[in-house]
């Protein structure tokens, strides 16, 4: 059994003149939670469509659990559970009927269906709404149902394409807790796309995509450390100190006697802190956020 749950190598795809994916390569080890992070139109959903076999890439190689997606798409589809960005429930059917259709379409053995559906209802927290029409569920409930449905056939990999779209902040957090909890309990591999940086904090590995290219990858901490820009805030002790700061950092922004300094490589925010600590009446470091790291990366990419 290969150690990689998902593998993309040199994947390219264009819609007419618009190039959506440019030589995309990524590896997702088994049992990990990977995030594909990037702005709208970066190519996240196109890559997901390629992994789901909905879209055949123009070039490159894709594997799920060692199964070649181009050669054996049906076998590959058995190994994945997918939750698309747009809802895919049949809202005219009941919650239970939606799950039953999925079981049949994925070939879940008849004898195992009742138990699988009961477990899915439990996982989604919707056992009490089993016979209600899917149309009567809230957006958050529908998302939970779609995730539970995607897991009905026991996939190795769960692919979530912007699953928090349309959810409020509390529901987004709850959904992420739900997904990471499921991943841990079931030893699932998760690939999730999003454009919200705070949502990928729980991911083991983040792949940042911009303009169809993977521009960086690493854990959230690694990305912060490598690409994030912390800033130093200081209020000079006296006029001489202020002039020295102005001379050393002409790009610093000033407000109410307080300077905000962004370090220029190879300087680091910590080095600046030590340099100016004695000259300051008031000094603090604002650490790099993942958002600033991603912003720097995607701006550079664009």
């Amino acid at each position: 059994m290969t150690a990689l749950a998902l593998q993309a190598a040199g994947v390219e795809h264009a819609f007419g003149e618009t190039v959506a994916l440019r030589n995309v390569s990524l590896d997702v080890p088994r049992g990990t939670v990977a995030a594909l992070l990037g702005p709208n139109g970066a190519g996240k959903s196109t890559l997901v469509d390629c992994f789901c076999t909905v879209l055949r890439p123009d070039a490159g190689h894709l594997e799920i659990g060692g199964v070649d997606l181009m050669r054996r798409p049906q076998q590959a589809r058995r190994r994945i559970g997918v939750v698309f960005q747009e809802p895919t429930l049949d809202t005219r059917l009941s919650v239970r009927a939606n799950l039953a259709v999925h079981c049949a379409a994925w070939g879940v053995p008849r004898a195992a269906r009742q138990a699988a559906i009961a477990e899915a209802l439990e996982v989604a927290g919707l056992a009490h709404r089993a016979d209600a029409p899917a149309a009567s569920l809230s957006t958050g409930m529908r998302r939970r149902l779609e995730i539970a449905r995607a897991l009905l056939h026991g996939p190795e990999v769960l692919i979530l394409d912007e699953p928090t779209t349309g959810l409020d902040a509390a529901s987004r957090l709850a959904l992420w807790d739900h997904v990471t909890g499921l991943a841990a309990r079931r030893d699932l591999t998760v690939l999730c796309t999003t454009h919200y940086t705070h949502e990928v904090e729980a991911a083991d590995r983040v792949h940042v995509i911009a303009e169809g290219r993977i521009v960086a990858e690493g854990s959230p901490d690694e990305l912060r450390a490598r690409f994030g820009h912390g800033v130093l805030r200081l209020r000079p002790r006296d006029l001489a100190a202020r002039r020295a700061v102005e001379a050393a950092h002409p790009d610093a922004s000033w407000s109410d006697g307080m300077a905000t300094i962004r370090p220029s490589p190879p300087d680091t925010v910590d080095a600046l802190f030590h340099r100016w600590a004695d000259a300051a009446r008031d000094i603090s470091i604002e650490r790099a956020s993942l958002e600033s790291a991603v912003l720097a990366l995607t701006e550079k990419g664009t």
Binding site: C52, V54, Q74, R77, V82, T88, L89, D90, A105
Partner: peptide, 14 residues
């Protein structure tokens, strides 16, 4: 339009 076809297209059904 409402996505159910995508759900079927990613199933193992030919």
């Amino acid at each position: 339009k409402f996505g159910f076809l995508r759900e079927l297209l990613v199933s193992p059904m030919p």
